[in-house]
């Protein structure tokens, strides 16, 4: 699976400044990749462009060997007329039922199947939303801060489990947590702060690709975190 952006330009209608200006960037899956950047650098916009929700103003995005691209974000809700369990069962194909059961157990949300989505905590909502995407057919899942409200130990477990369960899939994980992306990603793609000119470069930093049952050395994690933050700040000294 390969995604390649060629001379990508994007400006939101009625916006004064472009989000992307002549951007060239690519990733090659499968694996767990991250998009990192300060707020407003265009992470979610890039995700929406890749998933086809937005169309580039100029340039193009080539996606090869990827049948289905899904884009999940953390403000999603399930319909209020269903319980969580009814909804999850209704959007899961029969062949994925056992996968759903495992995910619900692994993610610690099996107990909430009779609950209404509106009655859950933000962290529980995040996990349920991610679970329903994982039981869909997909080749690339863009996960835009989907675990933003989940506590750190649970989040780490979820990512490790996800990498074990789906070794042949590609994940593009959008996060503001440098430690997390440094530890778990194969590559971290950092969108640098480019003021009003629009982002035109994405730096690639090798991540530690930590798998389930392993532990990346702490000094390497710190080194990567520093590199990520430095890159995000446009190669100036990051404020730690």
């Amino acid at each position: 699976m390969q995604i390649a952006c060629r001379n990508l330009h994007y400006t939101y209608p009625e916006a004064d400044f472009p989000v992307f200006r002549n951007l060239n960037w690519s990733i090659e899956g499968p694996g767990f990749f991250s998009l990192f950047g300060l707020s407003g650098t265009g992470k979610s916009t890039l995700a929406r462009l890749i998933s086809g929700e937005l169309s580039p103003v100029k340039g193009h995005i080539d996606i090869q060997n990827a049948g289905r691209v899904l884009y999940a974000h953390n403000t999603e809700r399930i319909p209020g007329w269903d319980t969580v369990g009814t909804h999850l069962r209704s959007v899961t194909q029969a062949t994925k039922t056992s996968l759903l059961t495992n995910i619900l157990k692994d993610y610690g949300i099996a107990a909430y199947m009779k609950s209404r989505f509106s009655g859950l905590s933000m962290g529980q909502k995040n996990r349920i939303n991610l679970a329903r995407y994982l039981v869909q057919e997909f080749d690339l899942l863009i996960a835009d801060e989907v675990l933003a409200n989940v506590d750190e130990p649970t989040r780490n477990q979820i990512i490790e489990r996800l990498k074990t369960l789906f070794p042949q899939k590609t994940f593009l994980y959008i996060s503001h947590n440098a430690l997390e992306v440094a530890r778990f990603s194969r590559t971290i793609h950092v969108l640098s702060h480019e003021s009003t000119a629009g982002t035109n470069r994405i730096h690639k930093i090798d991540g530690l690709d930590q798998e389930e049952g392993t532990e990346a050395p702490e000094e390497l994690v710190q080194e990567r975190v520093y590199a990520i933050l430095r890159s995000a700040a446009g190669n100036s000294e990051p404020r730690l």
């Binding site: 899904l70 403000t75 999603e76 809700r77 399930i78 319909p79 959007v91 329903r132 995407y133």
Partner: peptide, 11 residues
């Protein structure tokens, strides 16, 4: 927030 999932999964 509700429709996104159904749209992107073709439902």
């Amino acid at each position: 927030e509700v429709e996104h999932f159904f749209r992107i999964t073709g439902r």
